[in-house]
Write a protein that binds this DNA or RNA. Sequence first.
DNA 1: GATCTGACCTACG
DNA 2: ACGTAGGCCAGAT
Length: 108
Amino acid sequence: MDEVLHEKIRDTVKAVPRGRVATYGDIADIARAPSARLVGTVLNQDGHDLPWQRILKANGTFAPHIADEQAQLLRGEGVTVVDGKVDLRVYRWEDAVKEAPPEEPGLW
DNA sequence: GATCTGACCTACG
DNA sequence: ACGTAGGCCAGAT
């Protein structure tokens, strides 16, 4: 597995501000991960010291096994969790777009 | 090297 | 709103 990418993903997760959230897809996007699956895989293996509670699925829900814990932690950061979901329109990490670097020039 | 599995995502019925 | 199906990528069998 690509160590660089691994760290990149970890860094990106760490970059999410307190009180905000991001989706696996967002992280994958910013970290240049080939797929959102990788983000989940990395967090699963090496996410113990990361703010993994700020990462959720694209629809604003949590990963099944950790849902409870995650909801608690996020509430502790001031994020409102309703019916096991977070309103992405409000809490989504907006800088995700800004951080997204341009594509390689000359591809087309 | 084929197959299965998973902290995913989108589209469809 | 909820289940399925297909696509996705890397690691483990």
